[in-house]
């Protein structure tokens, strides 16, 4: 059970958005294979604090794979080598004794670095603000069962809605494209009758905002889907394309 491993970490350190960053190498010993990756980072930081050095800054919050706060590009993969999970759920049993682990921040022009491994993903919020909602005010809505929604449709909408907004899709994409994120929201709302009403407007507004914020163009490599911790399918991108094109041809 209580197996431990020794590791070498190459961690990207960068004091601020404008500062020049570089890799620092740290040795860390006796890491329990039952600990999570972030707990391993905690141990590293405790070690740094004990040496009176500044700990590594990284984003994290719920540590149960749902808030989407944790990031980190670990050994060439956003959220590390294990599939369908976030960094906080990545466990050290996925690594070998003596291994070198390279930890980098998300790299995308639309996600500027704040410090060390922490990036600013505010662009995703701005895309949602541009149209990722249904225009309803509180109160005065019909009964929840007023419009039946087929189970398959509700389930597919739920699959799209499971996006946690972590940014792994754009981080993994060689084009720095945010299409999977945008598609997940557009598709979720386009599938449901409540969202369909303003589907055309939403698709145009969100895509325009995405382009404006400097994300790249989707070339359908599928890297986003492969690295998405929630397994959101690129079939939603097809739906976004369809929604967008139909909307444009209707103009």
């Amino acid at each position: 059970m209580d197996k431990t491993i020794n590791l070498t970490l190459k961690v990207w350190r960068q004091a601020g958005p404008k500062a020049k960053g570089k890799f620092e190498t740290y040795k860390i010993d006796n890491v329990s294979t039952d600990s999570s990756f972030l707990e391993m980072m905690d141990v590293l930081n405790e070690q740094l604090v004990a040496e009176r050095k500044e700990p590594v800054a990284f984003d994290h919050d719920c540590r149960e794979g749902i808030c989407g706060m944790c990031s980190m590009y670990i050994n060439g993969h956003p959220h590390g080598p294990d599939g369908e999970i976030t960094t906080c759920q990545l466990h050290m049993r996925n690594f070998n004794d003596g291994q070198t682990i390279t930890i980098e921040p998300w790299r995308s022009a639309a996600f500027p670095i704040i410090k060390d491994l922490m990036v600013d993903r505010g662009a995703y919020d701005k895309i949602i603000q541009a149209g990722g909602y249904v225009n309803v005010n509180t109160g005065g809505v019909p009964d929840g069962n007023a419009i039946p929604i087929g189970k398959d449709i509700a389930d597919e909408a739920m699959d799209a809605a499971s996006c946690i907004g972590c940014g792994a899709c754009a981080a993994a994409c060689k084009n720095g494209s945010a299409m999977l994120f945008v598609a997940a929201k557009v598709s979720q709302l386009a599938l449901l009758p409540q969202g369909k009403v303003e589907g055309a407007h939403r698709a145009k507004a969100m895509v325009a905002k995405m382009d404006e914020l400097g994300f790249g163009n989707c070339t359908n490599t599928g890297a986003c889907e492969a690295e998405c911790p929630k397994n959101v399918s690129i079939s939603h991108i097809a739906r976004l394309n369809r929604e967008f094109l139909v909307a444009k041809f209707q103009d």
């Binding site: 790299r107 995308s108 996600f111 994300f215 163009n217 599928g222 890297a223």
Partner: peptide, 26 residues
């Protein structure tokens, strides 16, 4: 050209292939 700009100035030091992503698509 746009995609290279969107990727940003700094590149990943380690880049691994993802499962299910074809070489040609990249």
């Amino acid at each position: 050209f746009q995609n290279m700009r969107a990727r940003g100035a700094e590149r990943y030091a380690v880049k691994n292939n993802q499962k299910g992503v074809s070489w040609s698509s990249q």
